[in-house]
Every structure is written in C-alpha cells, then in structure tokens.
C-alpha cells in the first residue's frame, strides 16, 4: 500500500524537484496533500520559488560600480 502522507523531508524534496520536472501524478497529489496540511513545508515551497524569481533578477546586482 502507498503511504499517504509524506514526511516534511520528502515533501520539501518533491517541492524542489517539481521545479525541475513534472512530478508523476501520485507524487503530485501526495505533495499537494502535504502542503495543504503543513504550514512549514508550504512556506518552504513558496520561499524556494521566490528564490528562483530573485535569482533570475540577480544579475542586476552586478551593475553596481563599487567592488
């Protein structure tokens, strides 16, 4: 039987992986379920997506003239 709930380690790892490739349907459902119930992983997931956004904008920091 497939275990229904991911641990936070599994959920956060899947959230990171989902940014690289589409997850299989079952994993996607398990991740969604975990994120809906776990505030910490929900925050983590949003924050790594924010870090992707920030990283894409980061080259503007090379504009500065000092060191």
């Amino acid at each position: 039987m497939v275990r229904l709930m991911y641990s936070c380690r599994e959920a956060s790892e899947r959230a990171s992986r989902a940014m690289e490739e589409p997850l299989p349907r079952m994993q996607r459902a398990q991740l969604w379920l975990h994120l809906a119930m776990c505030r910490g992983c929900h925050n983590f997931s949003r924050q790594i997506e924010f870090l992707r956004l920030a990283s894409r904008k980061s080259p503007k920091m090379f504009d500065r003239d000092e060191g």
Binding site: S7, C8, R9, E10, R39, G40, C41, N43, F44, R46, Q47, F50, L53, A54
Partner: peptide
Amino acid sequence: AGRWTEMPGTWGRPE
C-alpha cells in the same frame, strides 16, 4: 523521522 528541526516561518511579502 523527517520532520523540520526548525519549522520554516513566513517571509511576509518577500517581493
């Protein structure tokens, strides 16, 4: 057991 040692808190509006 795979739990957070420190639960990630909110970042508010990071943008």
